[in-house]
Amino acid sequence: MAVKVQIPAPLRPFTGSHSTVEVDGRDVGEVLENLVAAHPQLRPQLFQPDGHIRSFVNVYLNDEDIRYTGRGQTPVQPTDTLTIVPSVAGGSAARCCC
């Protein structure tokens, strides 16, 4: 069963410039694993070396952040869309770094 995965612009060099890819899987974890298996350069962008999703990477199953829906075990349906969105934060309360 394939679901659509929406790829943010900076990661498209790793998906052959595709903004949306279809990936098989029964749950979110399987979809993400199959996604990085098909596009290996995505793995370090999405996952830490220990296999956990990087802290600034948010993954939504339709409108739900998977952190709040059972993480990787959340089942998926063929009509679902998985969207990868970075968490964005910052601020001036520190010295300039660069």
Partner: peptide, 24 residues
């Protein structure tokens, strides 16, 4: 984009620590 009130228009260590992917 974001603003730095009364602070230079340069990234801080905090900005770096919370950055997303290269390519933005």
């Amino acid at each position: 984009y974001h603003s730095h009130p009364d602070h230079p228009a340069r990234p801080t260590q905090f900005d770096l620590d919370h950055a997303a992917w290269p390519g933005y």
